[in-house]
């Protein structure tokens, strides 16, 4: 089955991931800009990071037949340095022009501080002015409900098109307001700290599959890109058809990411070949 991994931090992973993903049906990944595990000090560090994910990483993925796309952002964890954020934001337009950059992400909130909120607003505003898609990170664990509510409040006060915004890492307590407001919602599968494959399928069954993006992130921390395939298996084991699985795990990413014409992978349909007439 063909799968698209819409949230994947490739630079933190080895080529073995690509090889195994290719062998298990992944045809494309999209890499949002991420926190490096420490707070970067210089705009140039971000610029080189953006070059890495927009220029080098596609070549690494291509060796395994996987298309690689990316997003640019200053991660919310680094938003406490507004001067740095503003300086890095100035360089976004030059990356919007690159052939595999899909938009702004992952911006969002971590502790929902004043600086984080200002950074989120600046990211979303810039994206909207340049016609870019937006990927929004919502906080972890105990901060999630409050942070997601704040994200929705910030967006409600801006002139945005919800169709072009993906709010990620939603869980059972945060999904409803995100989809009711018309945004795309992402389930991020993690071994322990976020959603699990089984819970993701529960939510797909409860809320439907429209405007849902399932991903397994995969970064430098405890994470597993193949939780996405585990989720496909769980979905199929509950009796959902191959086409229904393709809709969730391939076609939905095509529909959201394809709003940027650079993402040119189209939704697919499984058809039975009619037997030749005797």
């Amino acid at each position: 089955m063909q799968i698209i991994q819409p949230h994947y931090h490739a630079i933190a992973r080895t080529a073995q991931d690509y090889e195994r993903m290719a062998m298990s049906g992944v045809v494309a990944v999209a890499e949002p800009a991420f926190w490096a595990g420490f707070d970067r000090l210089y705009p140039e560090t971000f610029i080189d990071y953006f070059r890495q994910i927009s220029e080098f990483e596609p070549t690494r993925a291509a060796q395994y037949g996987i298309r690689h796309f990316c997003w640019v952002a200053v991660n919310p964890k680094e938003a406490e340095n507004p001067v740095l954020t503003r300086e890095v934001l100035k360089h976004f337009p030059e990356f919007f022009a690159k052939p595999t950059v899909l938009g702004v992400g992952e911006t969002g909130l971590h502790k929902s501080t004043k600086n984080e909120i200002e950074s989120l607003e600046a990211h979303v505003d810039l994206a909207m002015k340049h016609g870019q898609l937006v990927l929004i990170h919502t906080p972890h664990l105990a901060d999630k409900a409050h942070g997601t509510k704040t994200v929705l409040e910030v967006l409600a006060g801006m002139n945005v098109d919800p169709e072009r915004i993906w709010i990620d890492h939603v869980e059972e307590q945060t999904i409803r307001p995100c989809i009711e407001a018309g945004y795309w919602a992402g389930f991020t599968l993690y071994p322990i700290t976020k959603c699990s494959p089984k819970r993701a399928v529960d939510m797909l069954e409860k809320y439907g599959t429209e405007k849902i993006l399932v991903n397994s992130s995969a970064d430098w921390g405890p994470s597993d890109p193949f939780l996405l395939q585990e989720c496909v298996l769980e979905y199929r084991r509950r009796g959902h058809s191959l086409q229904e699985a393709i809709e969730v795990f391939h076609n939905n990413p095509c529909r959201f990411l394809g709003q940027n014409p650079k993402f040119d992978i189209k939704p697919i349909r499984v058809e039975t070949i009619a037997a030749p007439r005797a």
């Binding site: 071994p191 322990i192 700290t193 699990s196 089984k198 819970r199 529960d202 069954e205 409860k206």
Partner: peptide, 20 residues
Amino acid sequence: FLESRHQILEIAAMMDRYDV
């Protein structure tokens, strides 16, 4: 703690799944 949180959520989800 986090591992136990995860396991409890899985059990709660299974119970919800059963009710549905």
